[in-house]
Amino acid sequence: MTSILTNLFDGVAYGMLLFVLACGLAVTLGLMNFVNLAHGAFAMAGGYVCAIMVNRVGWPFFAALPLAFVASAMIGALLERTLYQHLYARSHLDQVLFSIGLVFMTVATVDYIMGSSRIFIKLPDVLQGQFDIFGVGIGRYRLMIIAICGLLTVGLQLVLSKTRFGSRLRAAVDDPRAASGLGINVPQVFAFTFAFGCGLAGLGGALSAEILGLDPYFPLKFMIYFLIVVTVGGSSSITGPFLASLLLGIGDVAGKYYVPKLGPFVIYTIMIVILIWRPNGLFGRTATR
């Protein structure tokens, strides 16, 4: 019984982490219909920035986290302005080729600079170990992830639903042409959102070093997970990807624990079934547009 709850807890933490990692991709795909397979590269960048600051420069972990966000967001903004924005009108094939190329370059570059082995970020003592609540093992680090990611999710939801920027973004996602007709600067909204999404991925990358492992192949290994979150969750709101992340997180943790030999098999099968059953995602729009 308690192992079920512990697994559930770990799964939720994992899922929320996936959500923070992937929600930027939902926007890229939903808003500009851009297939960005390189999203994981921004996450990896954040992870490595955090690792360098903590392990080599000696910054405290909690100070390095915001920096991971800022660094990835800046890289994202730079690439969006210089490269990505020229490809919005291209075919999906072009976008796929471009972003795969970017992933390959990132993998090789990080490998060159940082080496190919997995790196660990030194965690403060506060975050190490676990404590028991009614016999359920709660990892401190995972609890922090749930707290941070939970706050971020609530914050995102509020920004999207309550602020002027949020309504502009939603209008732009719904119908870019109509939105620009209403005087919304769609490219600007997108550039900002893209950078923000990359920042979140960077933060997620820093947080995930402990759980998912951080090495140069991170963007390739987890590409499919991010894509699952977005395609299964649909890209018309952030609730869909959020629920999809939780399902994926819990499913993956449970799968590895209960049927260790079939873990990935289960995940991919479910993904294919869902995509066939609901091509617009489990929580996506169903009406024909």
Partner: peptide, 25 residues
């Protein structure tokens, strides 16, 4: 054959990953 480009990308990718997972299993 069902679905658009993106779904096809995901499904083809998923099938290859599935085969790899099976071969590993």
């Amino acid at each position: 054959i069902r679905g658009v480009d993106l779904t096809r990308l995901m499904v083809t990718l998923g099938i290859a990953l599935l085969m790899e997972a099976l071969a590993e299993r």
